[in-house]
C-alpha cells in the first residue's frame, strides 16, 4: 500500500460544496422526519439485539439493555438503523461513481506496518465506541447534529472531541505522518 501514501490522486468534491449539501441533508431530515443524522446509536442497537439473542434473560435484567428493549416494536426506533443502512449504500454509490472501490486493503502511514495499523484501529474503535455512550452520540449524532441544533451539550462535545484529538495528536504522529 506504499503507493497510496505517496500519491493522493483521489477525486473528491469541493469541501464547501460537500458541507453545504450536508447541511441541507440535515435540514431535509429535520423537515421531513424530525430526526437528526446519527451513527453510533445503531451500533448500540446492534449490541442490544445481540444481547437479546444470546441471553434474553440477562438482557432483561441488565440496567442498560432493558432501557432499549421495550421500544423496539415502534418503527420510529428503527429510523436510525434504516438511515445507517442508507449510509452504507450512499458510501458504496460514491465509491462506485468516483472509482474508489478496491479489493480489500489496509491503509496506513509510512512509519507503521499494516498489522500495527489494525491493532491501533481496533483500540481506537473500542475507545471511540465507549466514548459515544458517555457523550450521547458520536461525531454525527452529538457533535454535528447537536451543534447544528444549538444543543449546549452538542457544541461542548464538538469542541472537546476535536480539542482532545488535537491535544494527543503529537504522541501518535508516527501513525500518520
Amino acid at each position: 500500500m506504499e503507493n497510496s501514501i505517496k500519491k493522493n490522486n483521489e477525486k473528491y468534491i469541493n469541501p464547501y460544496l460537500g458541507g453545504v449539501l450536508l447541511g441541507i441533508v440535515m435540514l431535509i431530515s429535520i423537515f421531513i422526519s424530525g430526526r437528526e443524522l446519527g451513527i453510533s446509536g445503531s451500533v448500540r442497537n446492534t449490541v442490544v439485539e445481540t444481547a437479546k439473542v444470546i441471553s434474553p434473560k440477562a438482557a432483561e435484567n441488565s440496567t442498560y439493555y432493558k432501557k432499549f428493549l421495550k421500544k423496539d416494536t415502534s418503527p420510529m426506533s428503527n429510523w436510525l438503523d434504516y438511515e445507517v443502512l442508507g449510509v452504507f449504500l450512499g458510501g458504496l454509490l460514491s465509491g462506485i461513481l468516483f472509482k474508489r472501490i478496491k479489493k480489500p486493503f489496509i491503509e496506513h502511514g509510512k512509519s507503521i506496518t499494516a498489522k500495527r495499523r489494525l491493532i491501533y484501529a481496533l483500540i481506537g474503535g473500542i475507545l471511540f465506541g465507549f466514548g459515544t455512550r458517555l457523550g450521547r452520540g458520536c461525531t454525527s449524532g452529538a457533535a454535528l447534529s447537536g451543534a447544528s441544533t444549538f444543543s449546549y451539550g452538542g457544541v461542548v462535545v464538538m469542541f472537546v472531541l476535536f480539542g482532545s484529538a488535537f491535544a494527543v495528536a503529537y504522541f501518535f504522529r508516527k501513525l500518520w505522518v
Binding site: 483500540i123 461542548v156 472531541l161 494527543v168
Partner: peptide, 22 residues
C-alpha cells in the same frame, strides 16, 4: 459524562483514524 466521552472519542479518533460514520 459528555466531556469525558468526548475526550475519549478524540483519543479514539487519533488512534483509530475514523469516527463511526466515516
Amino acid at each position: 459524562s459528555m466531556i469525558t466521552g468526548a475526550v475519549i472519542m478524540g483519543v479514539g479518533m487519533i488512534i483509530g483514524g475514523f469516527c463511526p460514520g466515516t
